[in-house]
């Protein structure tokens, strides 16, 4: 049933309940290798809980899921080695330099020292941070920090990278560059699972799912969704669906 070669994420009736409250209600979907998968939903729709289950931070109440070829219940340790994660919080250490942050994250993913050195040099060059390598990350502008955080989240070449609102608070130009980085990561075969509040970004995704009240209401390419609801932008599609939410914020 599960074909890890084609699908890097498969979820079947994945559910999380907290007491009487069903945060995520039997979501079923598949994400293809190298796909950029948009995960939309209003605050409280269950996005974060769903991501936490997929990353192994939270165990599902019921349902099945296979991440990067590993079972979510039986092989959480293998999953962790094969995914990258960037949270909506800024996730680097401000009191460590650019180089030290890279070395730390590469280190906890068990990369060899020689690999760490090579990738560190390559990464700094790619981001044009040569003059900032020895500077504390706290001194960098927010946009640069976010780009650095993304590069570090995929430094161990994961099969999947989960991005939880990676561009919040970033200016439009940097957002554009950020999406450029997402595309090149996807081109290298890394599956990108991304949540966002900017609905213009939803247009950049290969496919988009919309969560309302813990359920996955729809899932398709942005073009197909716009056609289906006969609306001009993803923003309109999202509003059209989210308006029917029973959960108040």
């Amino acid at each position: 049933m599960l074909k890890p070669a084609e699908h890097t994420i498969t979820a079947k009736n994945l559910t999380k309940t907290f007491g009487d409250f069903t945060a995520v209600d039997a979501i079923t979907f598949e994400v293809k290798k190298g796909e950029i998968f948009g995960f939309l939903g209003a605050n409280g729709a269950g996005k974060t809980t769903a991501i936490k289950m997929l990353c192994g931070l939270s165990s599902p109440s019921s349902g099945e899921a296979n991440i990067a070829g590993f079972d979510i219940y039986k092989q959480p340790e293998d999953i962790k080695k094969n995914i990258g994660y960037m949270s909506q919080h800024f996730s680097l250490y401000g009191d460590l330099t650019v180089e030290e942050n890279i070395r730390f994250y590469a280190g906890i993913y068990g990369l060899k020292s020689t690999e760490i050195k090579e990738r560190s040099v390559a990464l700094i060059k790619e981001l044009g941070l040569e003059n900032y390598a020895k500077r504390f990350v706290a001194e960098l502008p927010l946009g640069w920090k976010q780009k650095l955080a993304f590069s570090i989240a995929i430094i161990h070449n994961p099969k999947i990278v989960f991005l939880d609102e990676p561009t919040s608070g970033v200016d439009p130009i940097t957002r554009r560059q950020f999406w450029g980085m997402i595309y090149s990561a996807a081109a290298k075969g890394i599956t990108v699972f991304v949540t966002t509040h900017y609905l213009d970004e939803a247009e950049y995704c290969d496919r988009v799912s919309i969560m309302v009240d813990g359920e996955m209401r729809d899932l398709d390419t942005p073009t197909a969704l716009r056609t289906k609801y006969n609306l001009p932008t993803m923003n309109d599609v999202f509003l059209h669906m989210a308006v029917r939410s029973k959960r108040s914020e």
């Binding site: 990353c55 192994g56 931070l57 962790k80 995914i83 994660y85 960037m86 949270s87 909506q88 919080h89 800024f90 996730s91 680097l92 250490y93 401000g94 994250y105 906890i108 989960f162």
Partner: peptide, 9 residues
Amino acid sequence: LGTIEILYV
């Protein structure tokens, strides 16, 4: 800081 989540993952 939120860095703990990265450590958990």
